[in-house]
Design a protein around this nucleic acid. Structure first.
Lengths: 239, 239
DNA sequence: CGCGACCGTCCGCATTTCGTAAGGTTCGGA
DNA sequence: TCCGAACCTTACGAAATGCGGACGGTCGCG
């Protein structure tokens, strides 16, 4: 079996957490964003301190990756101002591993640090580690009600006509994704990427999981009316 | 005395927080108090274990800084007794940086520890870090009534259908947390962080405590209907 | 100093999950 | 009608997951 370049988010944590990356170096920004996205996060970016503060207020990310050295306001100062109005976890990227910076960072209220140059994998690991534990700071995902289906992401429950469906982790994640994007056709590759966070792999994995979901939501699984096949393309959820 | 170069408390946030410092060495006590006060905390002091226990009960501080070496009762022992009746965060001052002490401290229920001789700056930083982290849990806790359960955080009592449950400290903390966040699925790791205040550790600790709580709240603990398992994810309290 | 409560850890077992493969079926174009 | 590709169905088995039981260490109390 083949593995993606970065460890995928853990099961049950595939929810679309938003991470704000604040970095003025385009190269670093590009690399960090790519790795975080491939780990399943929605990445938003800002290239200076003011934009960062605006983004935190407006977009309410679940976590902030913040460069210590920024044009305009200093990173630690940005961190302090974020702290003045928010408890969002902050990972500070420091130029050196000097204790001076570390103390400043602690003082500014950062939750973790990473000395540059840093490994993008390690960044992903730290982000995952913090988000895995966080409970209260996370913005709760909104419940969705569409057609006969009701999705409660926090409880990890999907109901159909009020009855709770007995779904496994994969089945839940797949159906939840489709419920968030109804009436839209997705290829197997797209689903493998969006739900499994795999960059490559056996596409029949998707086929079989679709089959299993159908078994639980279709009145007649042999002729689906809700999770339909789009021939030559993939699948679509009709409501 | 030279005045500490620590960031002052932000207005409206850290003010009014009461920190109890338990330390028999007058010099250390003086220095620590000065730094904490200049950081905006209201500092109260105790010079031995008995006075500390009394102060915790009577003054209900928001955080306790506790020397490991005390005349009379041992610091770790004081910590344990505090834990028996309170969830107030405790920072333990250990004489040496030996891992031995650290383990003892964690076992006694301390939230953090600091090796002596310590930098007063760092002490302030740790205090800030912990109080910021638990700001929501420190706000005066209101009684909650949900379904058949009634939670009285101040008295540390949980009733079910009016009958008081005989819960141990850990069991109480876990059930209380779940009662505060009903119908929401939590991973073991989240629970370990939110209830145990551990950033690492054996996840089976959570599993076992869940089992013990089930024994006391479920009609049939072998097929739970209230504290249910979310397969591949964790646990959820349904009411 | 023994007894029980508490609590973290560990082990064996049962169950569930899920990727993979293999063979059958359907679809659409020529 | 024929054919290949796309899709479906089923089954298998390794791995993951959860659970009960038990053990040992610590602490409180008589």
């Amino acid at each position: 079996m083949e593995y993606p370049a970065v460890a995928p988010a853990r099961r049950g944590e595939l929810s679309d957490r938003r991470v704000l990356v604040v970095e003025d170096d385009p190269t670093v920004l590009e690399v960090a964003s790519a790795y975080l996205e491939s780990a399943g996060y929605l990445v938003e970016v800002a290239t200076d301190g003011f934009a960062a503060l605006e983004a935190v207020a407006a977009r309410r990310p679940d976590l902030v990756v913040l460069d210590r050295m920024l044009p305009g306001i200093d990173g630690a100062e940005v961190c302090r101002r974020i702290r003045a109005s928010s408890t969002v976890p902050v990972i500070l990227l420091t130029a050196m591993s000097a204790t001076e910076d570390r103390i400043d960072g602690l003082e500014a209220g950062a939750d973790d640090y990473l000395a540059k140059p840093f490994s993008p994998r390690e960044l992903v690991l730290r982000v995952q580690s913090i988000l895995r534990r966080s409970v209260t700071e996370l913005t709760p995902e909104a419940a969705i009600e569409r057609g006969p289906f009701a999705l409660d992401p926090a409880a990890r429950i999907i109901r159909r006509d009020g009855r709770e469906l007995a779904l496994s982790v994969r089945e839940f994640d797949l159906l939840a994704f489709l419920l968030k994007h109804p009436r839209q056709a997705f290829s197997r590759e797209q689903l493998l990427h969006a739900v499994w966070h795999w960059d490559f792999g056996d596409l029949s994995t998707v086929t079989v999981t679709v089959r299993r979901v159908r078994e639980k939501i279709e009145d007649d699984p042999t002729s689906p009316t809700t999770l339909v096949t789009v021939w030559g393309v993939g699948y679509r959820l009709d409501l």
